[in-house]
């Protein structure tokens, strides 16, 4: 089980579809995927976790960095589709208090494009 990702543009929003395990070994690939999301000011990005089985603090670190970059670029970052286990990890680490998340992709796109 490894990590894959896919990036699409959906009505001006960068949609990053993530799949598989995000752990210490794959965190660097995840980091590369999110590296350029907020290269332009006011960019918007949606991270879709619906196919992610597992995430560890290494993956949280990448999400946190992406959130920091979003703030600097005055853009918006939204997480969506987190499964229960993954959601718990975010919850335990207190990330859901500082990073917005929604239930699914369509909701996310709707909010971002509003």
């Amino acid at each position: 089980m490894s990590f894959e990702h896919d990036i699409n543009d959906e009505q001006g929003t960068r949609l990053v579809s993530l799949k598989g395990r995000i752990d210490s070994a794959t965190a660097s690939a995840f980091e590369q995927a999110t590296q350029d999301l907020f290269a332009t000011p006011n960019a918007r990005a949606l991270l879709d976790f619906s196919a992610v089985d597992y995430i560890s603090s290494a993956g949280l670190r990448v999400v946190l960095m992406a959130a920091k970059r979003a703030k600097q670029a005055q853009g918006r970052l939204l997480l969506c589709g987190m499964r229960q286990h993954v959601r718990e990890v975010f919850e335990i680490s207190g990330f859901l208090q500082i990073i917005d998340s929604v239930a699914d992709r369509s909701e996310g796109l709707r909010q971002l494009n509003a």
Binding site: S57, A58, L60, R61, I92, S93, Q97
Partner: peptide, 24 residues
């Protein structure tokens, strides 16, 4: 121990793992 209440800019990326182990 990480400060879970800090905002995005203030949050440090380290120390989370051990916190999660202790929590879980």
């Amino acid at each position: 121990a990480p400060s879970l209440e800090a905002g995005v800019e203030e949050r440090a990326v380290g120390g989370l793992g051990v916190h999660m182990v202790k929590t879980m």
